[in-house]
């Protein structure tokens, strides 16, 4: 029963949130690309540490990985143009 009361309280509190929800939307849209770019970079560093002679080829692959991930971020930045009231 206590959990139901807590959930009801949470719903009441969320319904009282005011302001621009687009800010929350951008925050959510930034999480995915943030994790994605972090993973791409960390794996590239790991690979260059293992095989430094492959650095040039790994840098190109890393750029391709970042390009794919940042596409999501750019689409997230452009969504206010279509979802704005």
């Amino acid at each position: 029963m206590q959990i139901i009361h807590l959930a009801a309280d949470a719903v009441t509190q969320v319904s009282q949130v005011t302001g621009n929800l687009g800010v929350l939307g951008y925050g959510l849209a930034a999480i995915g690309p943030g994790i994605g770019v972090g993973l791409v970079v960390s794996k590239t560093i790991e690979s260059i540490a293992r095989q430094p002679e492959l650095a040039a080829r790994l840098q190109v692959t890393m750029w391709l990985g970042i390009a794919f991930t940042e596409a999501l971020a750019l689409i997230g930045l452009a969504t206010p143009f279509i979802f704005a009231a």
Partner: peptide, 9 residues
């Protein structure tokens, strides 16, 4: 405005 979105995508 949607035209901005669709050209970006």
């Amino acid at each position: 405005r949607p035209i901005v979105f669709f050209t970006v995508v």
